[in-house]
Amino acid sequence: MSELTNKEIGEKGCCDIIEIKGLEKWYGDFHALKEVDLNVKEGEIIVICGPSGSGKSTLIRCVNFLEKFQKGSITVDGTELTDDVKKIRQVRSEVAMVFQHFNLFPHLSIIDNLTLAPIWVRNETKQEAREKALKLLDRVGIKDQAEKYPNQLSGGQQQRVAIARALCTTPKIMLFDEPTSALDPEMISEVLDVMVELAKEGITMLCVTHEMGFAKKVADRVIFMDEGQVIEQNTPDKFFENPESERLQLFLDQILTQ
């Protein structure tokens, strides 16, 4: 059992770690999120899919307050997200995010990318931070690239580093915003493998992705969004084999014909 998670399998389904109630967001006049309700239990793996513009990225970006919302509420591990800077920081210390375009810091080495937050946000010593970072790099298979710089690595390697960087802050929740969409096809599996390993360890994950294979393998629930609202959600088998709503059927047809 990895020392990075401090819960055991079996406790999944105990409490709601994320509560989203009646969430509404507008970009100017555009109604981007329409009364979204979503509860996520600790340790759950949720995959969110849907056509582009459906609001999936916007939704998960609201969870760590990268996007502000106008109506409704989001509560993360007991803390309600408001404009209060303290609350935002509290939530962000427990939620980590992996971006579509990696967003590694190009002027810092890989190891410095990882130790930045632990040193400056959690006030760890340089020694501790580096040891932890090296262990994580080892887990994602990048240990010998530690002193290299992001632009010297391939896309798949960079995204794995991004995942390691997110894990450095020992988060309870990981948000993935289309983590493999910017990768060349041959590099997608190396990143998905890391994500599958993570899922097995019990961390709560919210993934926006088109990778249905991943969803079938590890997801507890799959959620379909379209035009700013949640249309349907179900366990992976029922979701893919027995879509109930017309829009989901249409969407699955489109994906499978690719």
Partner: peptide, 14 residues
């Protein structure tokens, strides 16, 4: 500086 840089930085709690 890419806006993603600032997002990643604030998402980490800086």
């Amino acid at each position: 500086v890419d806006s993603g840089q600032k997002e990643a930085a604030s998402a980490m709690g800086l």
